[in-house]
Amino acid sequence: MTRERATTGGPGAPARSVLAIPAALALVLLLLPLVALLSRVRWGSLGSALSTAGAGEAVSLSIRTTLTTVVLCALLGTPLAWVLARSTGRWLPWLRAVVTVPLVLPPVVGGVALLVAWGREGLVGGPIHDWFGWTIPYSWVRVVLAETFVSMPFYVLAVEGAMRALDGRYDAVAATLGASPWRTFRSVVVPMVLPGVAAGATLAWARALGEFGATITFAGSFPGRTQTAPLAVYQALEIDPDAATALSMVMLLVCVAVLALLRGRWWR
């Protein structure tokens, strides 16, 4: 979305100096904790601190589950975004509200909701358990379910925004040329909203990586199986604060690296 900048006078110097103070404060609020984190890392004993925190398996689990989550979001969320972008029914605002709810819901509430839905005595999980004697195991599957629940809205809303900005006449032209709705979606719409898809995927991935509340509630915490990096940081803080800061720093680096990588690609 590009908007014309107000041209009367332009951003003058006095206004800039007045705004500089709160802007600097905002920067301090954002940066100070990160600087403090880096200053607390004991570089000499970093290796042993990381192994205390179980960093290897936690980070590996986090990367595997968040990537799976992004793929799920793309496969299921892109069609949903398309439905939201192109439908006109009276139910549409409600549908959109439903998609937005997990975005604002406290994650731990999401975890409780997932438990009563998929758990052994849950709305869906209960009958499945009674009939097949099977429940979703406490494994990466639950982690991915929790992460998808919280990050799908970010993906859908970002992609929907991009799709709505797309001129509807492209669809019409494709249709007059004989393309089926599926072909139009696949060959016209998706390629044109790729930057939106990338932005949505990044947002969803970041949200999934930070996921804590829903995961610990729904998937529990087992090292190597359901204990993702944020859960490992939380637990490490109670065992050895140095381990917690070391693992926090690794997560910070992973996030910065991914953002830097994507920035060159899709953002300017």
């Binding site: 052994r120 529990g220 915490s221 087992f222």
Partner: peptide, 20 residues
């Protein structure tokens, strides 16, 4: 066969209460 290590005893008990 441990499926989860919970953060405190009430959270541990909750998993049983919920039938999980």
């Amino acid at each position: 066969h441990v499926v989860s290590y919970e953060q405190d005893v009430k959270a541990t008990l909750a998993k049983v209460r919920l039938g999980e």
